[in-house]
Design a protein around this nucleic acid. Structure first.
Length: 903
DNA sequence: TAAGTGGA
DNA sequence: TCCACTTA
């Protein structure tokens, strides 16, 4: 919203006083509403198309014209003097649609927030107000609008600017276009009439004839006076017969300039933009792009940030903090990995804008100025005091770091990162800095900025205390402000339940799992790596021999050259970005029918991937202190509510094929322990059965049938015992496709059949499972109406494209609408089970630890003696965690490694 | 379909 | 940044 004083449009006025820009508000509201295709709504389902279009127009005007005087005119409610005169005036106009009228208050608020005065007077239409301003304000006037009805107002002193067409219409233009003075357009319209506004006019006369007549006689009255002279019979008769109508019409279309408008120029003065208010409105309306363009206006003062260097002061602050409503807390460490770093300092904020930084382990010249480590216990006692509510941003990190110092955080009120995620799980990131920028309008100091004078390998511990203070205090401060932002919003929605009953309690469970880690057999992996290296070497030589030259097989570019240029193999398809020809699995599979090279490359790739991603990478990530692998479970990444795992990702460890199993064998329990794997059987399909209430599906699950076999029997129209393995495989793919929201196209590709055939399969499926079809139609309709979908527990996912005019985008949103409630509900179910299991484990004080979650599977490390007890607990909790219309079923397996525990 | 990782 | 590949 740069307020540069540029007048890019040359305004054709002799008068060089600043013009008044008079905006035809009502016409823009309608234009935005009807002109923008598709549908736009915010996360709550409020339609926003007109607000958006209007806002863009206003922005364009303010940017390009930078007006000193400006006003938006709106139609007032109720009848105008025109109705008194002619009761059918505008009788053909339908009333304002509901989904437009709800937007009007927002449009007005935004206008005010931009500092633009609003004019609205009972009994008058916007056009009349504009006419009054144009004729009675002695100033240059720019009417902002595009409506032809306003053309008669144009004069030496009045022009019209249409920001949408970017067209400036002045007197000269009108004369060129119509050949008459602007005011005469009234007479033209009176003769021609207007069916939209129900202005009668004279039958048989259109704009062309009207113009000709007015040009000839000068005015409507003169035309009527000379009606007798007109040669054409029909025209003459009509003019004489309908002279009265024509005169009434003139009264109707004549713009009334008598409206009691404010005459003081000060009323029209542009006021400053209220960025805070705009931000609030844009946030509510979900105008993300506009939000980003708002300047960061909020300046947070760092003046009240205190560096605490004195033990006595620590005690004082801790005592004060105990009485705080909520304490925002942030730990500074020297690594990103909470399983490795040490605590360098602690920041607190409980009375914003005050905040405190407690440095403990900084390095360098100032080290001796810091707090003695004993002071940390004072903070620890505060952190362990469950009566003091804490919030943090990504608090799991702090939880783990603290736990390594033997400190257990109690009284967790929540996590602002999680709050942001629940509020909109499709956001790209939930980083403190981005949220601060976008939601608070405050630009934070970046980590990069703070550490820029440091050498590459140096950590936060090397940051000078003053600088560290500002950075750390700002983190705690902004966290507090985000807490104030999100909490009321979460409480307002169904999200509060998901937050307090699922995601918040899960934080601690995940922290435990990450801290537990998992053991891998590094010696075994080393040996395996050597074996693969050998195989790769042989394959490599063979590939070079077949290709006739040496090249980098890992480079898809070089491989593409060999396959398509040198060997002239058919180019099957392009890469998704269309920048090159694809060399992916599917393509190589097909090409292997023509040549032996693709097969070899396929084999090489599988092995190379296995080696680099798993066999070689995993041992490097073993924590030297614990001797185990500690993944990080991210709770705020996926759009559906699933978890994700990284550093390393333990949710995509291979399972298929011989080599895959060999890698799973490297994951082993501690001595004296066994692995117990518990996975939900067909949880997605069971959730689908619950949602759809499909009788066949529900019955199949209650009878414990093999669901893919049942599906095969249904779609092939045979009995279950007649189903061949091939049929079952196809049915399985279809079930899979339904749950993952696969398109008919995707299904065709997966089954390697024609698209029509795939479509026929899907149709057959819907015939046999009509409830599923009903569910899909219903959920898509609901999504269209609300603009979002939700899980059984109220977790939401916005679907902005659900009404998009772009078919691809819309269909994608539709598949998402079908899939998210299913996958998200399944994710909620397993999260709930994890929370309960963790709780029972702690109550019973068992030695068993939950190690991993892989979407529908949990992996435990169980002392041999506890096996039977734990099996019982796990099954009972997982199967009983919610009651659906179908039973939940869990498969348990025990093993001395992860491969065994899968069978 | 979605997410993470490795290699160029 | 793009591509390919692993899991669910």
């Amino acid at each position: 919203m740069a307020q540069k004083n540029l007048f890019p449009k040359k305004l054709p006025f002799r008068d060089d006083r600043a013009p008044i820009f008079v905006i035809d508000g009502s016409s823009f509201v309608y234009r935005a509403y009807y002109a923008i295709r598709g549908h736009l709504s915010n996360r709550k389902g409020l339609p926003t198309k007109a607000v958006f279009g209007f806002t863009q127009m206003l922005l364009k005007l303010l940017r390009e014209m930078n007006p000193e005087y400006v006003v938006v005119c709106f139609d007032a409610k109720g009848l105008t003097f025109r109705h008194d005169m002619f009761k059918d005036y505008k009788a053909n106009r339908p009333p304002m649609p509901d989904d437009l009228s709800v937007q009007i208050p927002y449009i007005k608020e935004i206008t005010r927030a931009f500092g633009v005065p609003i004019l609205e007077i009972e009994g008058y239409e916007a056009d009349d107000l504009i006419a009054a301003i144009a004729s009675r304000m002695d100033r240059p006037i720019v009417i902002v609008g595009g409506d032809k009805d306003l053309f008669p107002l144009i004069s030496e002193r009045v022009v019209i600017w249409d920001p949408m067409k970017d067209e400036l219409i002045d007197k000269k233009k009108i004369k060129e276009r119509y050949g008459v003075e602007p005011q005469k357009l009234i007479d033209v319209r009176a003769l021609a009439g207007d069916s939209i506004d129900n202005v009668p006019g004279v039958p048989g006369i259109g704009e062309k004839t009207a113009l000709r007549l007015i040009k000839e006689y000068g005015s409507l009255e003169e035309v009527l006076n000379h009606a007798e002279e007109i040669k054409q019979k029909r025209l003459r008769e009509n003019l004489i017969k309908h002279a009265g109508d024509a005169l009434i019409s003139k009264k109707l279309v004549e713009l009334n300039d008598k409206a009691p408008i404010p005459l003081e120029i000060d009323f029209y003065r542009k006021r400053p933009v209220n960025t805070l208010k705009l931000r609030e409105l844009f946030l509510e309306l979900d105008f993300k792009k506009l939000l980003k363009e708002l300047p960061a206006t909020k300046t947070i003062s760092y003046e009240q940030y205190k560096l605490v260097l004195d033990f006595e002061k620590v005690k004082e602050i801790v005592e004060k903090a105990r009485k705080a409503k909520v304490l925002a807390l942030d730990l500074e460490s020297d690594t990103k990995d909470p399983m490795r770093g040490k605590i360098v300092g602690v920041s607190l904020c409980f009375e914003p804008p005050k905040a405190y930084y407690f440095p403990f382990r900084h390095e360098g010249l100032e080290a001796q100025k810091q707090l003695p480590w004993e002071a940390f216990s004072n903070l620890a006692s505060l952190i362990e005091d469950s009566s003091v509510k804490k919030v943090g941003h990504n608090i799991k990190y702090d939880l783990i770091l603290l736990a390594r110092y033997g400190v257990t955080l109690k009284g967790l009120e929540g996590d602002t990162m999680l709050a942001s995620y629940l509020f909109d799980p499709t956001r790209r990131t939930h980083g403190l800095d981005e949220l601060s920028e976008e939601l608070l309008g405050h630009t934070m100091i970046s980590y990069k900025e703070v550490t820029k004078e440091l050498a590459k390998e140096e950590s936060f511990a090397r940051v000078p205390l003053e600088k560290a203070k500002v950075y750390a205090c700002e983190d705690a401060h902004v966290t507090y402000l985000l807490y104030e932002y999100f909490w009321p919003r979460l409480k307002e929605e169904t999200l509060w339940k998901v937050f307090t009953e699922i995601d918040r309690p899960l934080i601690e469970v995940l922290a435990y799992m990450e801290m537990a880690g998992i053991k891998i057999d590094t010696a075994y992996l080393k040996e395996f790596s050597r074996e693969i290296a050998e195989k790769l070497k042989k394959l490599e030589e063979k590939i070079y021999a077949v290709a006739g030259e040496r090249f980098n097989i890992n480079s898809s570019k070089q491989l593409g050259y060999i396959l398509f240029e040198k060997l002239k193999l058919p180019k099957v398809k392009k890469t998704p970005k269309k920048t090159a020809f694809s060399t992916d699995n599917e393509v190589l599979e097909e090409l292997s029918l023509h040549h032996e090279l693709p097969r070899l490359v396929l084999e090489y790739r599988t092995l190379a991937k296995l080696k680099s991603t798993y066999v070689d990478a995993l041992p490097k990530m073993v924590n030297p202190e614990t001797g185990r692998l500690h993944t990080s479970f991210n709770q705020t990444v996926t759009a559906t509510g699933r978890l994700s795992s990284s550093d390393p990702n333990l949710q995509n460890i291979p399972v298929r094929g011989e080599e895959g199993l060999k890698i799973r064998q490297a994951f082993v329990p501690e001595k004296g322990f066994l692995f117990l794997s518990a996975d939900y059987s067909q949880i997605d399909l069971r959730v689908l059965a619950h949602y759809s209430e499909d009788e066949t599906l529900i019955k199949a699950f209650w009878q414990g049938e093999d669901i893919h076999r049942r599906t095969a029997a249904e779609i092939f129209g045979i009995s279950p015992d007649e189903v061949t393995p091939e049929m079952r495989r196809m049915a399985k793919t279809i079930n899979f496709g339904i749950v993952y929201g696969m398109s008919p196209y995707g299904l065709a590709k997966e089954l390697k059949i024609g698209r029509r055939e795939a479509k026929a399969f899907i149709e057959r499926y819907f015939e046999r499972y009509p409830g599923v079809k009903r569910y899909m139609e219903q959920i898509v309709a609901e999504a269209r109406e609300k603009g979002y979908v939700e899980t059984l527990f109220g977790r939401k996912r916005p679907l902005p494209d659900i009404n998009s005019p772009n078919r691809t985008a819309r269909e994608f949103a539709e598949r998402t609408a079908i899939n998210t409630p299913i996958q998200g509900t399944a994710a909620d179910i397993i999260k709930l089970a994890m929370i309960k299991i963790h709780q029972v484990f702690r109550e019973k004080g068992v030695g068993t630890r939950m190690l991993l979650q892989v979407h529908d599977e949990l992996l435990f490390e169980v002392p041999e003696k506890e096996i039977e007890e734990i099996k019982k607990i796990v099954r009972q909790i997982m199967e009983g965690v919610v009651e659906l219309k179908v039973p939940l079923k869990v498969n348990l397996a025990i093993g001395r490694n992860w491969a065994e525990a899968k069978a």
